[in-house]
Computed example of a mutant assay.
Amino acid sequence: MNEGVEWALHSCVNLTWMDDGQAVTAARLAAFYRLPTAYLNKQLQALARAGILTSTSGPRGGFRLARRPEDITLMDVVTAIEGPEEAFRCEEILRQGPGDHEGVDYRESCVISQAMRRADLAWRRELAGQTVADIKATVERRAPSAPGDTRNWFANLRT
């Protein structure tokens, strides 16, 4: 996974703490973690295309959550940034080996491919079972001042 997934998830959590209707620009979100604005903006645009964020242009524009945090899974964010492909791609190298049998789909019969697909499915299920709201709640439990501190930081940022 590329770092854009981490950046996107942190941005989504930070957006949960903004007042209703408040949009935050890519530059402001990037400044929060000292990230490159152009690259973070690509991640935010991918989230907008996936219906996770909305994007508004203009002086009061920026990004905001398009759905309730309870309705955004970690898998939604990963898929928006990384795409829907499986992490492991069987290239059917058994076909090149001495035991090649014509007409065999080695993606289905290869024990390694099967194990990797099961692991990928378990990973996807775990991410699909957690939401941005779950992450938000855990952060708030561990750092109760995080929502207010984040709102204050954005309110006092001059960009």
Results as ranks from 00 to 15, higher is better:
residue 69 P to W: 03
residue 99 G to K: 12
residue 17 W to R: 00
residue 156 N to R: 14
residue 111 V to M: 10
residue 59 P to T: 14
residue 140 E to M: 09
residue 33 Y to P: 01
residue 83 G to A: 06
residue 114 Q to M: 03
residue 17 W to P: 01
residue 100 D to H: 15
residue 107 R to M: 07
residue 121 L to S: 04
residue 47 L to K: 10
residue 102 E to A: 13
residue 3 E to S: 08
residue 104 V to G: 00
residue 106 Y to H: 01
residue 6 E to Y: 08
residue 75 M to L: 09
residue 122 A to W: 14
residue 128 A to V: 02
residue 119 A to Q: 03
residue 154 F to C: 07
residue 105 D to W: 08
residue 31 A to D: 12
residue 30 A to D: 02
residue 111 V to C: 11
residue 99 G to V: 12
residue 137 A to Q: 13
residue 145 S to F: 06
residue 114 Q to S: 02
residue 58 G to T: 04
residue 64 R to W: 13
residue 32 F to E: 06
residue 3 E to P: 06
residue 124 R to I: 00
residue 26 A to Q: 07
residue 3 E to Y: 10
residue 58 G to V: 13
residue 95 R to P: 01
residue 27 A to R: 14
residue 140 E to I: 00
residue 24 V to H: 00
residue 21 G to S: 02
residue 78 V to K: 15
residue 24 V to I: 12
residue 55 S to G: 11
residue 137 A to R: 13
residue 151 R to F: 00
residue 113 S to W: 01
residue 18 M to K: 02
residue 94 L to Y: 10
residue 110 C to W: 06
residue 51 G to C: 07
residue 1 M to Q: 04
residue 112 I to A: 09
residue 60 R to D: 14
residue 139 V to N: 06
residue 13 V to G: 05
residue 11 S to R: 08
residue 49 R to S: 13
residue 87 A to K: 10
residue 110 C to K: 03
residue 14 N to Q: 06
residue 132 V to T: 02
residue 59 P to N: 14
residue 7 W to F: 01
residue 50 A to W: 11
residue 80 A to E: 14
residue 14 N to T: 07
residue 92 E to D: 04
residue 157 L to K: 12
residue 138 T to P: 03
residue 29 L to F: 11
residue 121 L to W: 01
residue 66 A to V: 14
residue 151 R to H: 04
residue 130 Q to W: 04
residue 61 G to Q: 07
residue 103 G to D: 03
residue 129 G to E: 02
residue 152 N to M: 09
residue 33 Y to H: 13
residue 16 T to M: 01
residue 31 A to M: 14
residue 30 A to E: 06
residue 108 E to C: 02
residue 72 I to Q: 12
residue 71 D to N: 14
residue 116 M to D: 03
residue 109 S to W: 08
residue 154 F to R: 03
residue 13 V to W: 01
residue 6 E to F: 05
residue 101 H to Y: 12
residue 125 R to W: 02
residue 20 D to H: 07
residue 32 F to V: 11
residue 41 N to A: 10
residue 9 L to H: 01
residue 4 G to T: 07
residue 96 Q to W: 08
residue 42 K to S: 10
residue 42 K to T: 15
residue 80 A to D: 15
residue 147 P to Q: 01
residue 107 R to C: 10
residue 62 G to V: 13
